[in-house]
Simulated assay, not measured.
Amino acid sequence: MTNNQAKKLYQTGIELMGYGKSQEAINYFREAVEANPSCMEANLELGYLVGATENYEEALKAFDNALKIQKTFPGLFGKGICHFFMEEYGKSLDAFMDAQEIGENEDLWYYLGSLHLIYTDNIEGAINCFDMAISINEKFIEAWNDCGVAYSILENDETALVHFKDALDIDPEFKPAIYNMGATLVDMERYEESLKYLDRTLESEPDNFKALFYKGNALYSMEKEEEAVEYFKKALKVDKDQEELWNYLGYIQSSIGQNHEAIESLNQAIKLNNDFEEAYINLGNVYLALGKDDLALDRFKRVLEIYPDNEEILREIEDLKGN
């Protein structure tokens, strides 16, 4: 094929994109690249389209081919996106930083912020990047929401709440912000308010582990222990490998007299983590409440095997031996 034929294939692909026929367009861009590997435009369009289908390996190859022809913002940005979704965060950051030397847009700032959150642990840097994205596009709902998450990590809950509300002003049905409102309100001990948002999350996502956990936590803090237990159980049906929650559940069960259920929950926590000091302590206390001092002593001794300097447990063991 000639270069002119490659251009015709590329143009046909563009026309098909205009009609929403993405898969057919992909095929034409592939043919255009095969006909003329130096057709930068076809490589770029191919990269973005196959990337949208989560075929990141092929997309990355297309962007690399485009960048061999010319170093452009779309090529570097596309490369950064591929590495981001392939969870190759270092390579993603490098590509985005190279792109930033050429140009910028709200998406670039957003992904840089995301990388600061999940890769570099630079929370202040993440906030700055999200703010830049919002300054370019004030309706960038994901940036509002994720900036709120960053403020939550910094325990600046009031500012986080403002950002989640701003996201919901853009779209009242934006699920991440609805959940984050609920979780943040729990952290702020505004439990009654939190339930409104957590319930909205659970209406559409009944198996949302975090929402179930936060609702259970809110109910427990409202001294509705039995309701809390039910929500923690629902959460554990979603993810049974949460040792901390098994321990928490066991502690609450013991506090309302469900000692036998508590034993099962605490043993499950220990099964997941044989060195779980707190679970052994809680289990020992349950056995004490049941008058099973020998079993309690055995669990407390196990605590000392894990942490020999636990003075409180040392005293507890001495008291039990004295009896």
Rank of each mutant, 00 (worst) to 15 (best):
T2L: 09
T2Q: 08
N3H: 13
N3C: 08
K8A: 12
Y10Q: 15
G13E: 09
I14N: 10
M17D: 12
M17A: 06
G20A: 11
K21Q: 14
S22F: 05
Q23V: 12
Y28L: 15
R30I: 06
E31H: 03
E31K: 07
E41F: 12
N43G: 08
G51E: 08
A52Y: 05
E54K: 12
E54L: 02
E58I: 00
A59Q: 02
K61G: 07
D64S: 11
A66D: 09
I69N: 15
Q70P: 01
Q70L: 13
T72L: 09
T72F: 07
F73R: 09
P74S: 10
G75E: 08
F77T: 10
G80N: 10
G80D: 13
I81N: 03
I81Q: 03
H83L: 09
F84I: 10
M86N: 10
E87F: 06
Y89Q: 10
G90F: 10
S92K: 00
L93V: 04
D94Q: 06
A99C: 07
A99N: 08
I102Y: 09
I102A: 11
E106Q: 14
L108N: 05
W109Y: 14
Y111M: 07
Y111L: 05
L112T: 12
L112R: 02
G113D: 08
S114I: 04
S114A: 13
H116V: 02
L117N: 07
I118P: 01
D121W: 12
E124W: 03
C129K: 01
F130R: 01
F130S: 09
M132I: 06
A133G: 06
I136L: 14
N137R: 11
F140A: 13
F140W: 07
I141T: 14
D146N: 15
C147G: 09
A150R: 00
I153F: 06
L154E: 12
L154D: 05
E155K: 11
T159S: 04
H163G: 06
D166L: 11
I170P: 02
E173S: 08
F174Y: 15
F174C: 02
Y179A: 01
Y179H: 04
N180L: 01
L185S: 02
L185Y: 02
E189Q: 08
S194P: 00
S194R: 00
D199H: 00
D199N: 15
T201H: 01
S204F: 03
S204K: 00
D207A: 10
F213S: 04
F213H: 08
A218L: 00
A218F: 01
Y220G: 10
E227R: 02
E227V: 11
E230C: 02
Y231T: 11
F232A: 07
K234C: 08
L236Y: 05
K237L: 11
K237Y: 06
E243R: 03
L245Y: 05
L249V: 13
L249Q: 07
Q253C: 09
Q258A: 13
L266W: 04
N267T: 13
A269R: 00
N274S: 14
E277R: 03
A279P: 00
N282P: 00
N285G: 05
V286N: 04
V286F: 08
Y287L: 13
K292D: 15
K292I: 05
D293I: 15
D293V: 15
K301H: 08
E305V: 09
N310E: 11
E311G: 02
E312V: 04
E312G: 14
L314G: 08
L320M: 11
L320F: 06
G322T: 15
N323P: 00
